[in-house]
Write a protein that binds this DNA or RNA. Structure first.
Lengths: 332, 332
DNA sequence: TATTGTTATGTAATCGTTTACATTTTATAT
DNA sequence: ATATAAAATGTAAACGATTACATAACAATA
């Protein structure tokens, strides 16, 4: 394996100069630089990144902990992260936790052992103490979720506001019995979307009806199951706001099976705008999260932390958008 | 940052002994080992992986190049890879190429610069020469696809056989006009599935009808578009074998829009068994690839290459399974 | 007890870059 | 030409773990 000293010898310079050509070209005289570049080319020299990382104690790699890589939202966020990372000469190591807390804890060692320069959490079940310990020492950004009283940078959307928007859309179509299937209530996001739904009810002069509110867990199956319960009520809801598209789809499946048509008999709005929302029958009205942008924003924030360890935790709240398709019926 | 020498001093041993306790515990006397372990615990010593990697010129990290992380098949394969990797104390670096050839080439530098110990390609657009150059020097495994005359280890399914199975299922239900929408024909897999389809026709005494064969590119939209063409034929097909579930779904959407019912007027079989196949209306009959197993098998193969650089390229062909749901109609 | 073999530990070189500091070269001003 | 400042380059010491080799401790045997 050809190393820096070989390049140096061939170009009649010292390794210091070769190193400078690579890392600080402007600090080397044009002529010298060319000589060195030529030697590098001739010898097909590839710098040893392991030595480099060791010496600089930086890996130019960041870790992203993903609860579920198969989920469109997360993969889009990852895409945004990657784009920004590559632009800044960083690599992205993906840690797929599969919603398994232990695995998430395992990944933290990558940070502690300085295997990576920083970490982005896309939703996390890690306890606050550990998180505080980590953020005190390493650059960490939390995307999509947020925690109160935490000194951790976050990028998120205003789930409450957009939950309200979604529910308000149904209410503005004249629905009086609007049901809600929430995400798992171990999750701040779920509460926020539900609170938004409640806000909308209040604003339209309607009272909360607990029979119309059911807890799911963001999955298709939970949407399906909870909808069956809702449909067995004496007073069926005429509309549903589901906290995720998957649950909305599950709910629609349950409705169809009972011969209830969507949107005629049941108007549905979801949340997320996953890839299949537009393919689904009927096309799903939903709140589109700017997932890619959230990814880039997270990476940008992380880079600031990496560059400046004293960077104060910041919060970026991005805008979502209600995408109206067929599942909510037409205004009337 | 506490380092090995600190641990050594506290335990009254040399760094060599500490290192041995960490890497070769059985070569150290019980008593000494305990002393060292205690120092490690007391000082909360975390070995510097950068130094370790540099010294051993091994990273215990492998790279997986994924064409599209959002695709269920690929994310499942990744899951299988990760499981096996973690069991063997390896980390997985994900390179999301987004079907962008240039990005794939970029990732290869990670291998050349020994940033990773090996690489798994989940379908690849990299040219044969480059691939040959790499496999000669580094451990590489190709999953899901394969190439002729290549000295590269592969893990795949028998696409031709299973394509035949899918088409044969439709033929055995009595259909005479079975259409096929293939994947992009820049891709071996697409040819194989199509050849399987043709095999099935032959076996059922039917002739190839080119008007019934159309080229898609695995996406929903291409399935939708190609189906529109097929439906405008004088003699409409009564059945369709699509080379991917997404295309099958797109095709079904196109059919529904023309008032053609699935499966009554059009029987459909897809390929892949992605997550949404079971949620779709109607439930999609499809060929389920053992994606997770393919991932593990790839990682196992890669580990063999890493351990033994003289390991001969091997091929593992795994079995797929036809999953019958509603979209193909009942036998009769 | 002396001899030999075995096991456990220590010493110090090594991996290949980077970079603080020292030195040389070049440019600028007098 | 000389003095001084600025720019370019070189020298050599890091970075922190691993490991070949040397040595010491211990055990087994005659």
């Amino acid at each position: 394996m050809v190393k820096m000293i070989d390049v140096a010898k061939r170009a009649n310079v010292s390794t210091a100069t070769v190193s400078r050509v690579l890392r600080n070209p402007e600090s080397v005289k044009e002529l010298t630089r060319e000589k060195v570049m030529q030697s590098i080319a001739e010898l097909n020299y590839q710098p040893n990144v392991l030595a480099r990382h060791f010496r600089r104690s930086k890996t130019n790699t960041i870790l992203v902990i993903v609860p579920n890589i198969a989920n469109t939202i997360f993969s889009q966020m990852v895409q945004g992260i990657e784009e920004t990372a590559v632009q800044n000469n960083y690599r992205v190591l993906l840690g797929n936790s599969n919603r398994n807390v232990e695995k998430e804890y395992d990944f933290l060692d990558l940070l502690r052992q300085r295997h990576v320069d920083g970490m982005i959490l896309l939703s996390s079940r890690i306890d606050i103490d550990t998180l505080n310990e980590l953020t005190a020492q390493f650059p960490v950004v939390l995307a999509s979720e947020y925690l109160n009283n935490m000194s951790i940078s976050t990028v998120r959307i205003d789930n409450r506001k957009h939950g309200k928007e979604a529910a308000a859309h149904l209410l503005s179509l004249g629905h009086k019995r609007v049901a809600h299937i929430s995400g798992g209530l171990n999750n701040r996001i779920s509460f926020d979307r539900q609170d938004g739904y409640l806000d909308a009810l209040t604003e339209h002069g309607l009272k909360r009806d607990n029979r119309l509110i059911r807890e799911g867990d963001f999955t298709f199956t939970s949407g399906y199951n909870q909808m069956q319960e809702l449909l067995s009520l004496r007073d069926r809801p005429t509309a549903l706001f589901a906290a995720s598209d998957e649950m909305a789809m599950g709910a629609i499946k349950a409705a169809k099976e009972k011969g209830i048509n969507v949107p005629e008999d049941l108007a549905v709005v979801g949340f997320d705008n996953i890839r299949f929302s537009s393919f689904f029958e009927p096309g799903l009205t939903t709140v589109a999260q700017p997932a890619v942008e959230m990814g880039s924003a997270s990476m940008e924030l992380l880079l600031e932390h990496i560059k400046d360890p004293n960077f104060k935790p910041a919060e970026r709240v991005l805008k979502s958008e209600l995408i109206v398709r067929e599942s909510c019926g037409l205004k009337g």
